[in-house]
Write a protein that binds this DNA or RNA. Sequence first.
DNA 1: CTAATGTGAGTGAATATTCACACGCAAAGA
DNA 2: TCTTTGCGTGTGAATATTCACTCACATTAG
Lengths: 195, 195
Amino acid sequence: MSTEITERQQEIINVSLALITESGIQSLTIKNLAKRIGFAESAIYRHYENKIQILLAILDFFKRNTEQLFSNQLNSNENALVRIEKLFVTHFRKFTNTPSLVAVIFSEEIFRNEKELSTKVAEIMNLNIASLTTIIKDGQQKGEIRNDIEASHLATMILGSLRMFVKQWSMSNYSFSLEKKGNELSNTIKTLLVP
Amino acid sequence: MSTEITERQQEIINVSLALITESGIQSLTIKNLAKRIGFAESAIYRHYENKIQILLAILDFFKRNTEQLFSNQLNSNENALVRIEKLFVTHFRKFTNTPSLVAVIFSEEIFRNEKELSTKVAEIMNLNIASLTTIIKDGQQKGEIRNDIEASHLATMILGSLRMFVKQWSMSNYSFSLEKKGNELSNTIKTLLVP
DNA sequence: CTAATGTGAGTGAATATTCACACGCAAAGA
DNA sequence: TCTTTGCGTGTGAATATTCACTCACATTAG
């Protein structure tokens, strides 16, 4: 009931993501959106009630994308270290192929004003941390991950490392291969986690 | 020549920080600023050429604050693990006492449009990572930090962890003691780094 | 007197949103 | 089959609001 989305709505989201990718979330205005689609500005409101609904749809897109990466590993029964490695690899691949997601991550401050938006951001992040914590705890029980450290701390560290690395990538104007150098970081983290 | 700042300019920065703390960087407008000071809007321009200069001054404030925390540890000759621990502790104390710094951290996307601003943000972050990397390398040479991991990766991880933790704090509406719970995280990281 | 500081009114550009209206298509009624 | 009705979609103009910024003038401090 929530995923029913018309073609036009999808187009609006796609163009929104393109705008965000090109010049940041600040450039996502109704005017730019309409111009890019080849629309009158007013036509947008035939498809979304207001701009907040568009932003919520964007966050939904983000949520669906990252959530899937986590739940894929959550429902696997490989070695926890491998699952965490795959978490990194799939994230880096996703960010490489869909750079708009990177802009969305770091736009959270803009969502702070609207309660509905900031709630959604918090929700996504808490969910991801919870998934990661579950994976880690599981690995600790099976002796695949060192046991002398609280799982929630590890989750904070791992997610924080991932984000910081992506931040460095975006700050360098995407001047290196996220997937390749990310692999090295992923190995480093594996080394730290091993018992 | 850059640090000469008048009383009024300092007041403008202080009020800016207060506004940012209360309702995010979005609420930092000339109108709000003037109202809070008890000013006409036009009076602002007697003290700052334009809004970008105000934002630059805010970033400068941020830079001075964090830079000092890093360089304090850079110039110490304690055990590297202790230096890193102190880095955490001093950061958490600073953020607790000056919450506006937290809002500034996560406002980077807003600075993306203006080149001068985004450059400054990148500059600050690169400097901090460089300082941290130096501390880690030093510790590795002295055998205080495990040697099987690249120092720059560790720096990314440590800074990423710190930021993610502060993010969780701010997302929880500052509902826990950053200093107290941060101590635990800091210990976790020490455990990971020890050879 | 002079320079610094403050004022109030005003500007243009940008913002999201609303409104009356128009067009074309598809179903329903005669 | 022709006509009517309604719906989905798009338009262009207008809305109110907010934004950073300017300018001629007034006040004040040294």
